[in-house]
């Protein structure tokens, strides 16, 4: 299985996916840096509470944008993991080797997941560092690490679903389908929170979209964790980006874990019985 993992990383490195990703990420982070710098120059938040709200807003906006970047990278790097290799004939030479198919599938999954997790970790901590250095965002490590854990669930979910999709959908079709699926989560969370009565904890739009794809639940639970586990009075200013009103429960986060396991298990099962 290590040969497959190594092969996947080698593919990412040699096909210049890494180089392009790093360059585009630098552009994104550069823009974010400029946004935070402008916030600092504007001098919003002359009192301590205002400054904290300002830095929190910057963190949440930064992580919202980077979670989109992470999502698209996860989807498009794994979109052709199986289907494109079958179409091109790469797997025809690999699968007759004496290695169980579950190891081939899991090896590829680990390869893509580690790559996506590393990438999202770099983005997450860079956003936090930028806001901390420019707007003195306080570093509460317990909250930051808890939030980081939630953030990392996003690429885990997306790589798992996308790889399972690549068993039967061609690369481009799978990429489009998974992007639309991800957008179901984003739109569900967004629209649900826009129409929400803040006192209501029961919004079926959000729940259903979270059950279909729980990436938005992970994002909003991350925001909740960044707030120190409480809903701050300033968070309405973040609108649908905040966890205001609906905080995804830990049961939903447990569901996310099961969701990931289920898709990996289904992927392995169907790949093991697939005619290639």
């Amino acid at each position: 299985m290590f040969a497959i993992i190594g092969g996947t990383w080698m593919e990412i490195l040699r096909k210049r996916v890494l180089l392009v990703t790093v360059l585009l990420s630098l552009v994104t982070l550069g823009l974010f840096f400029a946004f935070v710098h402008l916030q600092q120059s504007a001098g919003n938040g002359s009192n301590a509470l205002g400054a904290y709200a300002n830095s929190t807003l910057a963190v949440v906006v930064g992580l919202y944008l980077t979670h989109l970047t992470v999502a698209f990278l996860s989807i498009f790097s794994a979109a052709g993991a199986i289907s494109s290799e079958i179409e091109s004939g790469l797997l025809l030479a690999i699968l007759p080797r004496p290695i169980p198919r579950w190891q081939v599938y899991l090896g590829k999954w680990v390869g893509y997941v580690v790559w996506s997790l590393l990438y999202s970790a770099i983005l997450y901590w860079t956003v936090i560092a930028i806001v901390h250095l420019q707007l003195t965002y306080p570093l509460h490590w317990a909250e930051l690490i808890r939030a980081f854990g939630m953030f990392e669930l996003i690429p885990l979910v997306l790589v798992s679903v996308t790889m399972a999709g690549s068993l039967y959908l061609p690369s481009l079709g799978n990429g489009i389908a998974m992007t639309l699926l991800f957008m179901v989560g984003v739109m569900g969370g967004f629209l649900g929170r826009l129409t929400l009565n803040p006192t209501s904890g029961d919004n079926k739009v959000v729940l259903i979209s979270n059950l279909i794809i729980p990436t938005d639940a992970a994002y909003h639970r991350m925001v909740f964790a960044l707030m120190g586990g409480s809903i701050m009075p300033q968070t309405p200013a973040l609108g649908p980006f905040s966890a205001q009103g609906i905080v995804p429960s830990m049961r939903l986060i447990a569901y996310t874990g099961l969701y990931i396991l289920a898709f990996v298990a289904l992927g392995i099962f169907f790949f093991s019985h697939k005619d290639v």
Binding site: G7, M10, E11, S88, G89, L90, L92, A93
Partner: peptide, 12 residues
């Protein structure tokens, strides 16, 4: 096994 329609990792 040598498949009929084959491709090898062209980045290697």
């Amino acid at each position: 096994y040598l498949p009929e329609l084959f491709r090898y990792q062209d980045w290697l």
